[in-house]
Computed example of a mutant assay.
Amino acid sequence: MLSSKPSNAFFKWLSESNGAVYSDLQNDIHRYQEGDLPKTSVRIIRLIYSQGQTQEIVENWLSNIGSICYVCRLERTVTLLGIEVAICESENFGDLSVLSGCDDLIVFEVKKRLPSLNQPGLLVMDMDSTAIQIECIDELAERAGVGKAVSEITELAMQGELDFEQSLRKRVGLLKGLNESVINELCNALPLTAGLIDIVTVLKSYGWHIAVASGGFTPFVQHLKDTLGLDAAYANNLVVEKGNVTGELSGEIVDAEFKAHVVDILESRYKVEHGQIIAIGDGANDIPMLNSSGFGIGYFPKLQLKVVADACIEKFDLRVLLFFLSK
């Protein structure tokens, strides 16, 4: 049975500097600064939320853990909020379903060393449906009047009847004759995923390198690179002649394996520790890239990717990524 203690008293204490122990719940809660956890053999979860009213649910849950626990605030320069909760390894967190059922709360159990925001790092992002809200080839297909045909080819690829390169070449072939101006117009109207500018700004302020590796097309990743000041961008080259798409590709195909290779290339180029490399994507095509990184994140991921990711963002937006970093 959950207690019905008044809300916010605990969080008021946590945000103030006086008093190392909070004793008004059924168990003692010890405050610590992020990175200075006084215990080593512990289980850790992080709670990320956006509204103060969620604090009442968290406080009730904390009061029913039944053992001493340790809590710190996760201070990030974004509007989301976060705390880290640690208990002895031999204890348990009680009924986590009370938390996971809350629409305004992400529960993340820390099971491996987290990349550190304070150390040099590398973030490699998928573009379509991760860094931006759309699938660029679908948008181009609609403008070319071949949206249905492209969708049917995509479905064959998803069913395993076509591999990525076959699927890509068939879809690009249907874009033959599309005027280059359509590509330029779409570049200038790319809908950035919420939180993208926030994480790029924060990571760059800490000296991180940021790149995009996409199975999409170079004009779009180059636009992102130039607009956001990214360090590198990889995608497929659409051939354009006399102002129109020829329906062909040039150069090496950026498929799942190439995206994984990008991680290796940039790890060597920037001399980043492997544990400081994050990859984020949404689909099965991103699995090798995530597996090549030190910490893989699924962004509203397909099931195949979700099961291999170290963490998933399935609520809020890209700002959550900052709470998967230590500090």
Rank of each mutant, 00 (worst) to 15 (best):
residue 315 K to M: 11
residue 91 E to N: 06
residue 63 S to A: 13
residue 186 L to W: 10
residue 133 Q to D: 08
residue 119 Q to M: 10
residue 78 V to H: 13
residue 83 I to R: 00
residue 99 L to D: 08
residue 74 L to T: 05
residue 214 S to Q: 08
residue 73 R to H: 09
residue 132 I to D: 09
residue 59 E to P: 05
residue 195 G to K: 10
residue 273 E to H: 12
residue 48 I to C: 00
residue 73 R to G: 04
residue 177 G to T: 10
residue 72 C to H: 05
residue 154 T to R: 03
residue 326 S to I: 12
residue 175 L to D: 01
residue 231 D to E: 06
residue 15 S to P: 04
residue 180 E to Q: 13
residue 94 G to H: 00
residue 31 R to T: 00
residue 266 L to K: 08
residue 227 T to Y: 14
residue 121 G to H: 10
residue 28 D to N: 15
residue 53 Q to N: 15
residue 304 Q to G: 07
residue 308 V to Y: 02
residue 265 I to A: 03
residue 211 A to V: 02
residue 289 M to Y: 03
residue 28 D to R: 15
residue 140 L to E: 01
residue 234 Y to E: 10
residue 13 W to A: 04
residue 173 G to Y: 04
residue 290 L to N: 03
residue 13 W to N: 00
residue 93 F to Y: 09
residue 79 T to R: 11
residue 157 A to V: 03
residue 296 G to C: 08
residue 87 I to S: 05
residue 292 S to R: 13
residue 89 E to I: 14
residue 85 V to Q: 03
residue 233 A to E: 00
residue 171 R to A: 05
residue 184 N to F: 10
residue 2 L to M: 15
residue 152 E to H: 14
residue 18 N to S: 15
residue 191 P to V: 09
residue 80 L to C: 01
residue 43 R to A: 06
residue 83 I to L: 02
residue 146 V to M: 09
residue 188 N to D: 13
residue 142 E to W: 14
residue 43 R to W: 05
residue 187 C to L: 12
residue 50 S to Y: 03
residue 312 C to F: 01
residue 85 V to M: 05
residue 22 Y to V: 00
residue 200 V to S: 07
residue 304 Q to Y: 12
residue 96 L to A: 01
residue 115 P to Q: 06
residue 101 G to Q: 14
residue 18 N to G: 07
residue 173 G to D: 04
residue 266 L to W: 07
residue 203 L to K: 06
residue 270 Y to E: 12
residue 148 K to S: 06
residue 306 K to D: 11
residue 155 E to A: 14
residue 145 G to N: 01
residue 187 C to P: 09
residue 87 I to V: 11
residue 319 R to V: 01
residue 190 L to S: 01
residue 174 L to H: 12
residue 196 L to P: 00
residue 76 R to D: 11
residue 267 E to H: 12
residue 237 N to P: 06
residue 211 A to Q: 08
residue 222 Q to Y: 15
residue 48 I to Y: 02
residue 165 E to D: 15
residue 121 G to V: 04
residue 123 L to P: 03
residue 126 D to N: 07
residue 68 I to N: 13
residue 4 S to K: 15
residue 190 L to V: 02
residue 302 K to M: 01
residue 73 R to V: 10
residue 258 F to I: 11
residue 129 S to E: 04
residue 121 G to M: 12
residue 188 N to M: 10
residue 327 K to G: 08
residue 251 G to K: 03
residue 236 N to R: 15
